[in-house]
């Protein structure tokens, strides 16, 4: 099953490689991994999207907790949570397609960030499923580039991951 794990870790050189190294050394999947410092500059927040059997996910959580640089871990998928990903796309936008692409972008609540004679550069935020369906709607032929950040997640309501 797909799990989205959120963690706080020391904002120190090497901390990221400890997490990444753990996943590769133990053969766990990583679908995506995002990381950036938090409002407290000594801490970084990481979101990892992974998949595995219940036993594997349990081990992943335990092994992450065991890393000395990891301050706390939460498996967001165990409760209500929000997941967002940012995607930037460069599309070939020529002739009649230009109107249609603009319309689709509006429907998906995306924004056109940059326009040239032949291209649109679009920003879109949402769940992985939403971003995937946008790509499907556009069709691969028109896509020149995609850049995705991978999911960031946060718990709903009182589910808070803090020091």
């Amino acid at each position: 099953m797909r799990h989205i794990i959120s963690l706080l870790m020391e904002n120190e050189a090497g901390a990221l490689s400890r997490v990444a190294g753990l996943f590769s050394a133990r053969g766990y999947n990583i679908e995506s991994l995002t990381v950036a410092p938090t409002e407290d500059a000594t801490l970084s927040r990481m979101t990892i999207v992974t998949s595995g059997s219940d036993a594997v996910i349990e081990q992943i959580n335990k092994q992450l907790n065991k890393l000395v640089d990891v301050v706390s871990v939460m498996d967001l998928s165990e409760g209500e949570h929000i997941e967002r990903e940012l995607m930037l796309l460069k599309l070939r936008a020529e002739g009649e397609a230009r109107e249609e692409l603009k319309r689709l972008t509006d429907i998906f609540r995306g924004r056109i960030l940059d326009v040239s004679d032949h291209t649109y550069t679009i920003e879109l935020t949402g769940s992985r499923v939403k971003l995937d369906s946008f790509i499907d709607a556009i069709g691969r032929d028109l896509i020149l580039e995609t850049v995705r950040t991978g999911a960031s997640g946060i718990g709903r309501g009182n589910r808070i991951l803090k020091l």
Binding site: A13, G14, S17, R18, G21, A25, V68
Partner: peptide
């Protein structure tokens, strides 16, 4: 050193 030993130490420091 920190990279080479990372998978076989409890923790390491530079």
């Amino acid at each position: 050193a920190v990279g080479i030993t990372r998978p076989c130490v409890k923790h390491n420091f530079l």
